[in-house]
């Protein structure tokens, strides 16, 4: 019994606190030199350098190359654009040639503006569809028995085991005339007397919506699940205890607290969906105007690399500006919350 021993010790030595008081101070002082060693950590810098080099070589450098192409003019050569820097060995002069023609060209034709707006619209609608389908799915998985959650999540991720392209091709079969989905929808709607003629789904914008929603759904479900699964169940009990019926508790507690998941999932769907090329090309048909298809046409059909690069950079600006605004707002909220 430590207490008794300590008390005995005090009793023997009286209430002389100075001696016992001084001992722990000396003991707690760290040995000299260790602190100096602790600061010198070369491994830390190396580890941190890896992501920076990765971003530098695989993001920044390619981006600068694309920007350089965008600031040139198309020409019949290999590669098919005018060089930006020209070194004249005779006069020993370096001439720099920057042209903004490909950017201004984007404004001369309505096609580009329309394609951008249409892409944003399609991405927006698809994000909403993903949210409407993904939220209940994520919620159901998060509320399932713990032993069921892993297999259910597995089912969400399972389609990734097949190539993205093959899955989109599969939808051609499903949505085409006589395809399983189209046939079922037509039979039901015509049976109900809602339509007289069978619907055409493949090669319409509807098919593009279906394809995009299907392909990007997991990117919505996973962050939503992560947020919902972390949520403290006692908050719902507290709401219920305070007189809040379950549906209202969902609206006032669960939904606001899952906003970070909703935002993360929406960005993960919206951003790639805006630049999507394969799905509108294979499923959407000629009526589905999206910027990804325009980019492809400029690059491969027109062999106009500068304009294709300008389209890509304009798309980046379209997406980066709202993301940065969003991050700033979020940062302010968090900063305000902490202060």
């Amino acid at each position: 019994m430590g207490l008794v021993e300590k008390a005995a010790d005090i009793a023997e030595h009286g209430t002389d606190g100075a001696r016992t008081g001084a001992a722990p101070v000396a003991a707690s002082r760290p040995p000299a030199g260790l602190g100096f060693l602790g600061r010198f950590r070369p491994g830390r810098g190396l580890v941190l350098a890896v992501p920076y080099f990765w971003l530098l070589f695989f993001f920044l450098v390619p981006f600068v190359i694309v920007l350089k192409i965008a600031l040139s003019e198309t020409t019949i050569a290999i590669p098919p654009y005018t060089p930006m820097f020209e070194w004249d060995p005779d006069t020993l002069q370096l001439s720099i040639d920057i042209k903004f023609g490909s950017f201004s060209y984007l404004f001369t034709d309505n096609l580009y503006i329309l394609a951008y707006l249409n892409s944003l619209w399609i991405a927006f609608i698809s994000t909403i569809l993903c949210l409407l389908i993904g939220y209940p799915v994520a919620y159901a998985i998060a509320k399932a028995e713990p032993s069921w959650r892993a297999p259910l999540l597995m089912l969400v991720i399972l389609p990734f085991w097949t190539s993205f392209l093959i899955r989109v091709y599969a939808w051609i079969g499903l949505l085409g005339n006589g395809g399983l989905v189209t046939e079922t929808v037509n039979t039901v709607l015509m049976g109900l007397g809602l339509i007289a003629e069978p619907l055409q789904i493949l090669y319409t914008p509807t098919a593009a919506y279906i394809g995009i929603t299907y392909s990007y759904l997991p990117f919505m479900i996973l962050p939503l699940y992560a947020t919902l699964e972390k949520m403290d169940n006692t908050l719902l009990e507290a709401a219920s205890d305070l007189g809040c019926p379950p549906w209202r508790a969902f609206l006032t507690i669960t939904l606001p607290l899952s906003l970070p998941g909703i935002l993360a999932g929406s960005l993960l769907v919206f951003i790639p969906a805006t630049g999507e090329f394969v799905i509108p090309e294979l499923l959407g048909g000629p009526d589905t105007l999206m910027i990804g298809k325009v980019l492809w046409a400029e690059f491969f059909n027109n062999r106009d690399w500068p304009v294709a690069s300008a389209v890509a950079i304009a798309l980046l600006l379209f997406l980066v500006v709202p993301i940065m605004l969003f991050q700033q707002v979020q940062g302010q909220q968090q900063g305000g919350g902490k202060g």
């Binding site: 009990e237 507290a238 709401a239 219920s240 205890d241 007189g243 809040c244």
Partner: peptide, 11 residues
Amino acid sequence: PPYRRPVNMMF
């Protein structure tokens, strides 16, 4: 149900 009881709880 809890939300109809004249009872409140401190968790």
